[in-house]
Design a protein around this nucleic acid. Structure first.
Lengths: 214, 214
DNA sequence: AACACTATTGATCGAATGATCAATAACAGG
DNA sequence: CCTGTTATTGATCATTCGATCAATAGTGTT
């Protein structure tokens, strides 16, 4: 009796197969990531993860020091994965091309799930200290990546600014804001391409159209 | 026994004074706004609001159809108040001056509490339908206000764009993104002034420095 | 002063959360 | 084959949440 099997879904479970700790830990991490991307960081609960993996909540608790840490780790894994992906996409011969590619990639609307995780992290990170630390670290990593593009452009004489650090922060802020908006009102995703390019041209002292892709 | 008095804080309460419904409703709304600004929309709970007003949770429930609606209403009240404030601040002789004033006002870091409410609303609005509708409505209102400034500038020959609607959305996205970032990493609040001005100059085909205030 | 209306309460549900811990059962090494 | 280690479980707590509703107590009206 007493409901259990956390909760309904595919009831009547047998005892979970015994696995190597590393394997089980990886499963739990993967399930947490899936849940976060599909339903948000707030849905990463003991019971939700346990249900997704097919084990009891107690086992999930056994593998994580506490849920705040698991949420923080999940956030980090998702966001680091995104950065790795984008790093590869953005490989281009010139800084202008890299920057144009970065903008079009991050604003193409195909990463709404990751954007949702970012936005939620800014709120949850205020109460979940581990998450807050992770958020700051990953924002720094992103800023660093963008700054490298800017700096290389300045060095090559393509861009003009005396503060690549600030430009990188500004750029990220713009991107995140536009994506956050698109999360709620996903219109105007297409036509904003040239507009943000013009904005960035203004920031970097470029002539109009310098950042048009192709 | 049985704890109660929701919870500890200033224990041993007497029965709350009987008030006119409108007055009590206003009190509840005000308390909800205060809580949302101080601790976030998620902290607007029956018990928190009741505690702040000095009544029982049941009374708060009596005055609101349900908590989703109260949260949505609270969000709307806060954001409408912000827009009204900014509308007054932004009264200026020329569109360029209005726009410059808008940017400096919204980016001066003095509205972090409202920004936090915005950011949280983008997340909560996905599950709370009433809130979601309110978020879209208030975003539209803001867009409208910004668009008016842009359009007036275009008409006066100060700005150059063929799509004031898109520019307004873009501008809002930038502002919200930068403010959201500042919520987590409030550095770089000062030096970004001229940078965002340059970005907007790029969007509106203005010469560098055209939007410098003073 | 009696009464009708209604603002306010107390008590209580049911659902969901994170967390703990003794008991169980699968596996590995001797 | 036995035994020790440990992955896994079941049961259970204490919190917190939104919500409901009969009972109570102010208030204004007649």
């Amino acid at each position: 009796m007493y409901l259990h099997w956390y909760t309904m879904s595919t009831s009547t479970r047998t005892r979970a197969e015994r696995k190597a700790p590393e394997e089980r830990a990886a499963e739990i991490q993967a399930a947490a990531r899936r849940i976060a991307l599909q339903q948000g960081l707030a849905a990463v609960t003991l019971r939700a993860v346990a249900g997704a993996v097919g084990v009891t909540p107690a086992l999930v608790a056994h593998y994580a020091p506490n849920m705040d840490a698991l949420v923080a780790e999940t956030f980090g894994a998702i966001v680091r994965g995104e950065l790795d992906e984008v790093r590869e996409i953005v490989v281009q011969p010139t800084a202008s091309r890299r920057l144009a590619r970065l903008l079009s990639t991050l604003l193409d609307g195909s990463r709404a799930d990751v954007t949702a995780v970012w936005v939620e992290s800014w709120t949850l990170g205020r109460r979940n200290e581990a998450l807050g630390a992770s958020v700051r670290a990953e924002m720094d990593a992103w800023q660093q990546a963008v700054q490298e593009i800017i700096a290389s452009g300045v060095e090559a004489g393509e861009f003009h600014t005396d503060d690549p650090t600030a430009v990188a922060w500004q750029l990220l802020g713009m991107i995140d804001g536009l994506n956050a908006h698109a999360l709620v009102r996903w219109g105007a995703a297409a036509e904003r391409g040239p507009l943000i390019a013009h904005a960035v041209e203004g920031m970097l002292g470029l002539p109009r159209g310098a950042l048009a892709e192709r």
